[in-house]
Design a protein around this nucleic acid. Structure first.
Lengths: 344, 344
DNA sequence: CTTTAGCACTCTTTTCGTTCGAGTGCTAAT
DNA sequence: ATTAGCACTCGAACGAAAAGAGTGCTAAAG
């Protein structure tokens, strides 16, 4: 049995309708909503076939059909219709971008908020991954005896800080000296290579402080990739509006999954090779997202993939709109970040 | 009609029971659970009195009584029994504090997580308010033509950064120069006075860049108090577990209120005068928290109030435990921060 | 005068059977 | 190959009845 044109049309109509209503859709409903001119009986026959092929499922004998994950997969692979941002959507986005913007992270946070407001799903953004960026400045600021704050600034305009231990006899001047030396020597090095370079080139120069430098490097590296707080959510509560989460139990597991930021971060990292990804229901490895779909987009600066953001919603999410919105936001985001960071 | 000893005992028993069960409590239930030796009839009479006095309410004629906000107020004012952290609770807290700690903000985030795990309510922490802190370092790092990143470090070990516009002809050396000058001149000034001082003392020195300095100052000031992301929540989903939020509608409004971070931030700021505050139900000004109670504690470093954290839960929260936990956490937090930042 | 046993009453919650309706699969006619 | 017709299935909605929890009041007991 093959998927002929009619079966596809019917399947599509069912998916469209189900996305809209969240209710199992029957043969009559389809005919009306999609203006298909076959009789309900014919449609029923086709639906039985589609079920046998695994594209549809029936919650119980006397209910309509709901699309399976396999159906959504087909839908997004073959039936997607991309559009741009609507005027209203662009306006919302602009609104967020017009407000105080004081760095990449705040742009990204605003992006998350806009995304969740526009789509009414849960939005998630990954903060830029420092590993691919280049060092612009390292500053060690003395705090108290034995403690200092290390601040790293990258070419992407991202700063990260951490309290570190320093030898008790280290002076402010010495810290300043180390800061300057490292900054000069490693200027424009990728964060991943700062450590090597330091060991090779500076070792001799600052030899007396070898031990300290080693721990410092370890901290810098750790700091650069620190996964905590590397992912920001917005609109998690939107999920509660959907009938699939009217059961508080389900809503709670969803929120628990999301509060587990690490897992989501890993997911986005994996997605960061691809310009777009769509992961449907059971395709999600992450436990607790099996009833969700995740759509991601990766933004770039100077043609380097920079970070990933996305939308999480029920499997019956409006893929057309979500993909359109993500694409639009991706463009907006790219151009804003570009204006921050144009190569000089 | 007065509140004699018996009425108080009964009221207390009702509150204790209601906190535990969330169900209206009747005259029999009380007698059993609290081992009060009056007959149900007597207790009923007293309950009628307590209702007349406004301490109890009846959802409907044939139900038990539930405590009013007024009752909780009496309860927390007169009947609170503080205890320390239990061993289990201290262990949870230690667990969070043992993990990567790379600065005040991460300590605070861990605190929020621990608090929500320990209490099973929603925890909230306010990030330290820079206004009271002193400048340790200001660094301007060039990013691209016309853009730089300004980084401020305070004596509290907190760094804030913002992308700023700079004159197109400004060189890296000049930026470095300005950074050094400001750092030297304003070292250990309160953030609130940095602006003044700059205008008075440095104006002459860096006069040619007067305009730039003015905008820079404005940005610094704005940056120091920037309210965004100044408050961190943990365990908002815990609220869904409580029967008072089994209605998805209510849960949604709660989450919406919380996602409105500004309002909560203002609330915590107001609470930051007091070592502890307890705000019960309708006492909350914030719309959407009328069915919640908020308990806050303020942590100090070097005897300066530094920031505030707290717990949000249903009005029938376990005030005894929450206050005990907050007190314990406050002590732990104070000693950790002190170790970071001891005056030198 | 206070306390308590007893009881009728109220109001919600639960249960259970019935009906209703949406949708199906099959059969037979077109 | 398509479609009209029809019997059948099964959840959702409804409603009456029963159960249950708790009260307020009255009158008796301490």
């Amino acid at each position: 049995m093959e998927l002929d044109e009619r079966k596809l049309q019917i399947l599509r109509a069912i998916i469209d309708e189900y996305i809209l209503s969240a209710n199992p859709v029957g043969s009559k409903a389809i005919r009306q909503s999609a203006e298909l001119n076959w009789s309900p009986a014919t449609i029923r026959n086709e639906m039985a076939d589609l079920e046998a092929l695994g594209y549809l499922a029936q919650p119980h004998t006397s209910a309509g059909r709901i699309p399976s994950d396999k159906a959504y997969r087909l839908y997004v692979d073959q039936m997607l219709q991309r559009a741009g941002l609507s005027e209203r959507e662009q306006a919302i986005l602009d609104g967020y971008y017009r407000s105080r913007i004081d760095g990449i992270e705040s742009v990204l946070r605003s992006t998350a908020k806009a995304l969740s407001e526009i789509t009414h799903y849960t939005a998630v953004v990954m903060m830029p991954d420092m590993a691919v960026n280049r060092l612009r400045h390292l500053q060690l600021v003395p705090l108290s005896e034995g403690k200092a704050l290390s601040v790293i600034v990258t070419d992407a305009g991202v700063a990260r800080d951490a309290v570190i231990d320093i030898p008790r006899d280290m002076t402010a001047a010495e810290l300043e000296d180390i800061s300057r030396t490292i900054t000069q020597r490693c200027y424009n090095c990728r964060m991943t290579t700062v450590a090597e370079r330091l060991v090779h080139e500076i070792g001799a120069e600052l030899q007396s402080r070898g031990d300290f430098l080693k721990t410092l490097l370890a901290r810098v590296e750790e700091n650069a990739q620190s996964g905590t707080n590397m992912v920001e959510f917005s609109g998690t509560r939107n999920m509660l509006r959907f009938p699939e989460y009217s059961d508080v139990e389900k809503a709670t597991t969803f929120l628990a999954t999301v509060e587990q930021r690490d897992a989501i971060y890993q997911m986005l990292r994996k997605a960061s090779d691809m310009e777009f990804t769509i992961t449907i229901g059971s395709e999600n490895e992450q436990e607790g997202l099996q009833d969700c779909s995740v759509v991601t987009a990766t933004y770039r600066v100077n043609d380097m993939p920079f970070g990933t953001f996305g939308v999480i919603g029920p499997t019956r999410m409006d893929y057309n709109r979500v993909i359109s919105v993500l694409q639009g936001v991706q463009q907006n985001l790219t151009s804003i970040l570009q204006s921050f960071l144009k190569e000089d």
